[in-house]
């Protein structure tokens, strides 16, 4: 029976394997026709939503792979706004609000609060965390 998952990603694409593990898990999850209620990027996981990451050509581009997955399956991908602002991940609204010189949040991600994690978790069959 298909199940609803909330997936929490706590690791950055560089310096931790948790983002990669979470991505592979999500692929397998969707291939088995389970649903992802929400991806929630928190702590250093918010770096996965940066559109400015440029890894060497022979290495995996995790932010690009996340974007591809999110677009392909039309997933809801929320980045914790408090964690993001502290780490320099901004959308255009926050760029204007804090008078910064760039916005770098990937187009398929949205910034929002921790309530979005709780709301998703409360309607999911499973919550799984990929720690860094």
């Amino acid at each position: 029976m298909p199940m609803k998952f909330t997936v929490v990603i706590l690791g950055a694409p560089e310096g931790s394997l948790s983002s990669r593990s979470a991505l592979e898990f999500c692929h397998a999850l969707l291939e088995q026709n389970h649903q992802i209620e929400r991806l929630f990027f928190y702590a250093d996981g918010v770096h996965n939503a940066s559109s400015l990451i440029a890894p060497p050509q022979d290495e995996a581009d995790l932010p690009a792979s996340w974007s591809q997955l999110i677009n392909e399956y039309k997933l809801d991908a929320v980045v914790c706004i408090a964690a993001a602002l502290k780490r320099g991940i901004l959308d255009h609204n926050e760029q204007t609000r804090y008078e910064k010189n760039a916005a770098n949040l990937g187009a398929c991600f949205s910034l929002s609060g921790l309530g979005q994690l709780i709301a998703a978790s409360s309607v999911s069959d499973r919550t799984i965390t990929f720690g860094s």
Partner: peptide, 11 residues
């Protein structure tokens, strides 16, 4: 186990 197996264990 592979990733599909990981998913099954989660369920």
């Amino acid at each position: 186990v592979d990733y599909p197996g990981f998913v099954k264990l989660s369920c």
